[in-house]
């Protein structure tokens, strides 16, 4: 296979570059490689969009579960504050 053909076919490499790009700047060579691939590959165009959506959704999931009201029970809290007070008195 020639080099260009390799780039066009290699979705494994393209998805790797898509993930890398979401965290770090790609090299010039990588940018070109990814552009060529995405131009011809509808699978990876969908992948690229979904990859971003997934990142957003995971962030949203964490935000909403932080606000969903996890509460420690009161006895546990009372005891815990007491342990802290004991620790403070020791010093």
């Amino acid at each position: 296979m020639n080099h260009l053909k390799k780039i066009v076919y290699n979705c494994k490499q393209a998805t790797y570059l898509i993930e890398k790009k979401s965290i770090k700047r790609l090299s010039f060579h990588e940018i070109i490689e990814l552009r060529i691939h995405l131009f011809g590959c509808s699978f990876c165009r969908i992948y690229s969009k979904q990859s971003r959506v997934i990142n957003d959704m995971v962030q949203e999931l964490f935000r909403s579960s932080m606000q969903s009201g996890y509460r420690l029970n009161d006895d546990f809290k009372k005891e815990l504050q007491q342990r802290i007070e004991d620790g403070l008195n020791k010093n």
């Binding site: 296979m1 390799k6 076919y9 290699n10 979705c11 494994k12 490499q13 699978f43």
Partner: peptide, 9 residues
């Protein structure tokens, strides 16, 4: 997920 030889989906 990918073709072992070409890397295509």
């Amino acid at each position: 997920f990918f073709d072992a030889e070409t890397g295509h989906w």
